[in-house]
Lab assay of single mutants.
Amino acid sequence: KPGPLPPNLDDLKVSELRQQLRIRGLPVSGTKTALMDRLRPFQD
């Protein structure tokens, strides 16, 4: 099960964002902004 995301996704490196997306079965392509947008729904 994926762990909790930090409140500020901007603090994560692109590689860390991609890792979080992979865990959730989401696409890992695109800019850092696109990756963050994709992860936002999973934040508490």
Rank of each mutant, 00 (worst) to 15 (best):
L5S: 07
Q43R: 09
P6C: 12
L12C: 04
G30L: 01
D44Y: 06
L35A: 06
V28T: 14
P2A: 15
L35C: 10
A34Y: 12
K32T: 07
K1N: 14
R38N: 02
R38C: 00
Q20P: 01
K32V: 07
R22C: 09
L39D: 08
K1R: 00
R24F: 01
R18W: 01
P4M: 15
R38V: 02
G30E: 03
Q19Y: 11
M36E: 05
D11N: 12
S15R: 09
P4K: 15
L26W: 00
F42S: 13
V14S: 05
D10Q: 10
K1T: 04
Q19V: 04
D11P: 02
R24W: 02
T31N: 15
L12Y: 15
A34C: 05
R18Y: 02
P6G: 10
K1A: 02
L17H: 01
R22A: 10
L26K: 06
L5K: 04
L35F: 03
D11Y: 10
M36W: 00
D37W: 01
K13F: 08
L35G: 05
P27Y: 01
Q20T: 03
P2E: 15
R38F: 00
V28E: 14
L35V: 05
S15V: 09
S15Y: 08
D44K: 15
A34R: 03
V14G: 02
G3S: 11
P7L: 12
R18L: 05
F42H: 14
L35Y: 02
Q19A: 09
R18M: 04
V14M: 11
P41G: 11
P2M: 15
R24E: 04
L12E: 06
T33Q: 06
P4N: 15
D10S: 08
G30D: 04
E16V: 05
L35S: 06
L21M: 07
P4W: 06
T31R: 07
Q19G: 06
Q20I: 13
Q19C: 05
Q20S: 02
T33K: 13
R40E: 10
S29H: 11
G3L: 12
L26G: 03
R18V: 07
V28P: 09
K1C: 08
L21G: 02
R38G: 05
L26A: 05
L5T: 07
L9P: 04
D11E: 11
E16Q: 09
L17S: 02
Q20V: 04
D10G: 15
P4Q: 14
L26N: 05
R24A: 02
E16C: 06
D10C: 15
S15D: 13
I23C: 07
D44W: 09
L5F: 07
T33I: 14
G3W: 03
R22M: 03
A34Q: 03
I23W: 08
L21I: 01
Q43L: 12
I23R: 09
L9Y: 02
L39Y: 04
V28I: 15
Q20F: 11
G3A: 14
L35W: 04
I23H: 13
A34I: 07
S29C: 09
E16R: 01
L12N: 04
S29P: 03
L21K: 07
L26I: 05
V28G: 10
P2W: 09
L39C: 01
F42R: 11
Q43M: 12
L39A: 03
V28L: 11
A34W: 00
G3T: 14
V28Q: 13
L35D: 05
L5Y: 09
D11G: 11
A34G: 04
R18H: 07
S29I: 06
R22S: 09
L9E: 01
L17M: 08
S15E: 14
A34H: 15
D44V: 13
M36K: 11
S29F: 08
Q43G: 10
L9K: 02
R40A: 14
D37K: 08
R38T: 07
E16M: 03
L26E: 07
M36Q: 06
L12F: 13
T31C: 12
P6L: 08
G30A: 00
G30H: 05
T31I: 11
D44Q: 09
D10K: 11
L35N: 03
K32A: 05
P7S: 12
Q43H: 06
R18F: 05
Q20G: 02
D11K: 14
Q19D: 12
R24T: 00
T31K: 09
V14Y: 07
Q20M: 04
L12P: 00
M36A: 08
R40V: 06
D44R: 12
T33M: 06
A34D: 14
L12H: 03
L12Q: 04
R40Y: 11
V14N: 04
N8G: 03
F42E: 10
P27A: 06
R18A: 06
G30P: 03
F42G: 08
L9R: 04
P4E: 14
D44T: 01
S29T: 12
K32L: 01
S29G: 13
L39I: 05
R22I: 06
A34P: 01
S15Q: 08
D10V: 13
T31W: 00
D10L: 11
L21C: 08
T33W: 05
G25M: 07
L35I: 14
V14D: 02
P2L: 15
D10Y: 13
K1L: 02
L17A: 03
E16A: 07
G30N: 01
K32S: 00
D10M: 13
L9C: 06
L21W: 00
I23F: 06
D10F: 04
A34K: 06
V28H: 08
K32G: 01
D37G: 06
R22E: 12
D37R: 06
K1Y: 03
D11V: 12
D10R: 10
L35E: 07
L39V: 03
F42L: 14
V28K: 05
T33P: 10
D37H: 06
S15N: 08
P4F: 15
N8P: 04
V14A: 05
Q19R: 10
E16Y: 07
